[in-house]
Amino acid sequence: MEYVLKTNNLCKQYRHFKALCGLSMHIPKGAVYGFVGKNGAGKTTLIRLICGLQYPTSGDFELYGVKNTDKAIAGSRSRMGAVVETLSIYLDMTAEENLKMQYRLLGMPSFDGIQELLKLVGLENTGNKKAKNFSLGMKQRLGIAIALCGNPDFLILDEPINGLDPQGIIEVRELILKLNRERQITVLISSHILDELSKLATHYGFIDNGRIVKEMSAEELEQACRKCTRMTVTDTKILAMVLDSMKIEYKILDDTTAEVYAKPNFTQLTLALSKENCEVVSMEEHNENLESFFVNLVGGANHE
């Protein structure tokens, strides 16, 4: 698999606080990589390191196969756009002026494409309105437009939907999906709003205490999180035999508990179990989502 970004044992220490300790992650090309972690887990620190705003204490990373210690990293960074934490826009300039400024910084030969970018993020009608008078959603979209100057292949978005109203969240989500699907831009997106993230991400990286706890694809997560009925019976061996005969997928957890996927006819199932002298003690629907998966993964309340 081709990776846009690979980190290897990255560590970052601020005086006595270790923000990252041996973080290793892999972002495949073309992915929307959801970066999940609670406050202070190290998400923004990692993004700052990748963007070159800070230097790692130890460890390294590769961006498009170029190591961060290599001088050619500047070339790799020019293929990247990022919105880190707070927005990076000139508040006393219009949306168009902000984009022109970024074009100059990139050394673009002309300002062609600025109108297209403004249209892409829905800011084509802002005219002479200064960015300081924009709504938070408009500022966020302008930030993304600036990150898109120079047609990057890799976009880093740190909490892009924080503070947005529902309409703003939908707009930003659709924009990210559009960029990924139509322009094949690889996106690294960190967010606390896990439900929203689950609508976007094709891959996930779960971070806790400066370490990646788990990396998985959306399919793998779906497998892990899919709906099931958790059954407690007197003998799971009999349950397994009956479920096999009914061609129903299941997972045995212990001698008395099993998870049954899909939705079987429970009357038939209990009758079949009764014939085999197996009693059904309890049945409950188990519906794990990204949020509960994350809480289970990082230990929930113990980690808060």
């Binding site: 790799s76 960074r77 990247m80 990076s88 910084l105």
Partner: peptide
């Protein structure tokens, strides 16, 4: 100071300027 307070100094570094 405006470059710092608006965060725009980061745009320069992110795109590869030293």
């Amino acid at each position: 100071g405006t470059d710092y307070s608006n965060g725009t100094i980061r745009n320069k570094i992110i795109i590869g300027h030293s």
